[in-house]
């Protein structure tokens, strides 16, 4: 059986000269969480865009459950999207400010009426009820259904974004710095929630962050990205092993 996500030697440049990614390869197995660490400008967000199919790699291949998603176009690309969903960094920017919460949450299900997530099978009723069930799943009450995003706190908005990410029961959830714009006390709540969902639903994560402690908490394996290249890849338990790349060690030395 092929791994859930297989990225083989992808490269990407923007403009004429700037090479953002060089020969990046990694895999994510079913139910696994891969932590991706890197500074801004290291190419983290480009990896997100490529895996989400928002952009095409210049070279290399991306397979989701054996399907070459980098070659898909149009309808096939749209249908492949149900397997990979995303949670972005800034919860304020990732919800349409003019849509009520419940509409944002169920939109993916509305786009794919054929998808019936296991955890929603016993929900009867329309889209609002589905939205309520999804919100409940991420620890939010149904009183938020009719609110607008600017009436929610940052943590609540991020939970809504997670609920939307889960709604199609994707195989892979890409979390692009999901906690870095949240308050410390809320970060812990969101990290716990993500871990809980991973264990209950068996979803795989690509957890991208510059917070090495959060990555260590979430991940089974960790990959370190520097200047568009993966320079280190290891099991989370080996973070402090002496074989680590010097750059990786820099990350573990800095915070208190």
């Amino acid at each position: 059986m092929p791994p859930l996500l297989e990225v083989i030697k992808i490269g990407k440049s923007y403009g004429d000269s700037v090479k953002v990614l060089r020969e990046v390869s990694f895999q994510i197995g079913a139910g696994e969480c891969l932590g991706l660490v890197g500074e801004s400008g290291s190419g983290k967000s480009t990896i997100t865009r490529l895996i989400l199919g928002l952009d095409k790699p210049d070279s290399g291949e991306i397979f989701v459950s054996g399907q070459a998603v980098h070659r898909l176009k149009g309808k096939a690309l749209r249908h492949s999207r149900k397997h990979v969903q995303v949670v972005f960094q800034d919860p304020a920017a990732s919800l349409n400010p003019r849509l009520r919460i419940w509409k944002s949450v169920v939109e993916p299900l509305e786009n794919f009426p054929d998808v019936e997530p296991k955890f929603l099978t016993n929900v009867s009723g329309g889209q609002r009820e589905l939205a309520a069930a999804l919100l409940d799943r991420v620890g939010l009450g149904s009183e938020l259904l009719d609110r607008y995003p600017d009436q929610l706190s940052g943590g609540q908005k991020q939970r809504v974004a997670i609920a939307r990410g889960l709604s199609l029961e994707p195989k892979l959830l890409v979390c692009d710095e999901p906690t870095s714009s949240l308050d410390v006390s809320v970060q812990a709540q969101i990290l716990n929630l993500l871990k809980e969902l991973k264990e209950e639903l068996g979803i795989s994560y690509l957890f991208i962050s510059h917070d090495i402690a959060a990555v260590r908490f979430m991940s089974d394996r960790i990959a370190v990205l520097k200047d568009g290249q993966l320079i280190d890849q290891f099991a989370a338990g080996d973070l402090f092993s002496p074989e680590r790349h010097p750059y990786t060690r820099k990350w573990t030395e800095t915070p208190a």
């Binding site: 970060q187 990290l191 260590r216 915070p255």
Partner: peptide, 14 residues
């Protein structure tokens, strides 16, 4: 509430 950088990693954060 902060995940520890080293040492024992709890299953859930406080």
């Amino acid at each position: 509430a902060r995940p520890p950088l080293d040492g024992f990693m709890p299953d859930r954060l406080a």
